Amino acid sequence: MLFNDDSPTVVAWRTIGILAALFAEAWNIANLTVTGERASEHFGYFTVHSNILIAGVWIWMLVQPRRPAWFEQLRGAATAYIVLTGLVYALLVAQPEEVWSWDITFTNLAHHRLLPVLAAADWLLVRSAQPLRIRRAWLWMIYPIGYLICCWIRWGIDGWVPYPFLDPATNGVLGLIPSTGQVLIAFIVGIYAVALMSRVAHPRVGSEDV
């Protein structure tokens, strides 16, 4: 069963997702003074980026029915990023007892569980307004690769990295190869899985161009 953008069900879950993402982010920002975390560190997390991006995409979709031809690529990239945020968190960042648990803090619940699930459902169940050109999905890797490069530049400047598996001081430069390689492979596989799912979920929409 596929839904349209203006379906009350779709509007409802997108609204819930937007509010959850923005409220969780506002909660984190309000707690910066309590936790002592620097704003430059907080906004250095891929989780923050992916949640803000998917919320922005959904806001756009709610307020602007007519969208440019390239918008479906943006929607696909945002979906891939947030879904992979949830997977990478579960596999590489979360404590063992948190991997399958929903009994975690609200911000983690929103950013790493609720938003990835809602985004995956939205991608699979809502008809695309424009055909998705799957052969262009490689462009979705530009941002994750750029993010990795910026993380290591930042580490060279002040020694801070957002995630332990990216830390040269802990893993050594050669030790970054397997951990970073796993993440990059996961992103490549995840990005093309998301892109190809548009063909499976919306065969007529995706059939114009591969």
Results as ranks from 00 to 15, higher is better:
201 A>V: 10
209 D>P: 09
186 A>C: 14
172 G>Y: 02
150 C>E: 15
18 I>H: 08
86 G>M: 04
115 L>E: 00
72 E>G: 08
98 E>V: 01
143 Y>R: 10
74 L>H: 06
115 L>H: 00
148 L>D: 03
195 A>H: 05
199 R>C: 13
170 T>W: 01
53 L>E: 02
108 N>G: 15
210 V>A: 14
142 I>D: 11
82 I>S: 02
107 T>W: 00
62 L>S: 04
133 R>G: 08
139 L>G: 14
44 G>E: 06
209 D>W: 07
46 F>H: 06
196 L>F: 12
118 L>I: 11
21 A>R: 05
134 I>L: 15
176 L>M: 09
113 R>K: 08
12 A>P: 01
111 H>A: 00
99 V>T: 02
153 I>S: 07
125 L>T: 07
186 A>K: 08
143 Y>W: 05
198 S>P: 06
157 I>P: 01
46 F>R: 03
173 V>P: 11
131 P>W: 05
10 V>Q: 10
207 S>Q: 11
175 G>M: 05
2 L>I: 14
18 I>Q: 14
80 A>R: 05
137 A>K: 05
111 H>S: 10
35 T>Y: 04
26 A>R: 05
135 R>M: 15
53 L>I: 06
76 G>R: 03
52 I>L: 10
63 V>R: 06
158 D>I: 07
97 E>N: 14
164 P>R: 04
39 A>G: 00
127 R>A: 09
118 L>C: 01
169 A>V: 04
201 A>K: 05
34 V>P: 03
20 A>T: 04
105 T>L: 14
175 G>W: 13
163 Y>P: 01
57 V>Y: 05
70 W>S: 13
77 A>E: 08
172 G>N: 07
113 R>I: 10
112 H>M: 12
91 L>F: 15
42 H>M: 13
156 G>H: 00
37 E>A: 08
163 Y>C: 12
61 M>L: 09
12 A>C: 13
104 I>N: 06
76 G>D: 03
75 R>L: 02
152 W>S: 07
27 W>P: 03
88 V>T: 09
23 F>P: 06
123 W>R: 07
202 H>R: 06
76 G>N: 06
77 A>N: 08
92 L>R: 15
36 G>Q: 01
158 D>F: 02
165 F>K: 02
137 A>W: 05
159 G>Y: 00
35 T>R: 07
97 E>F: 15
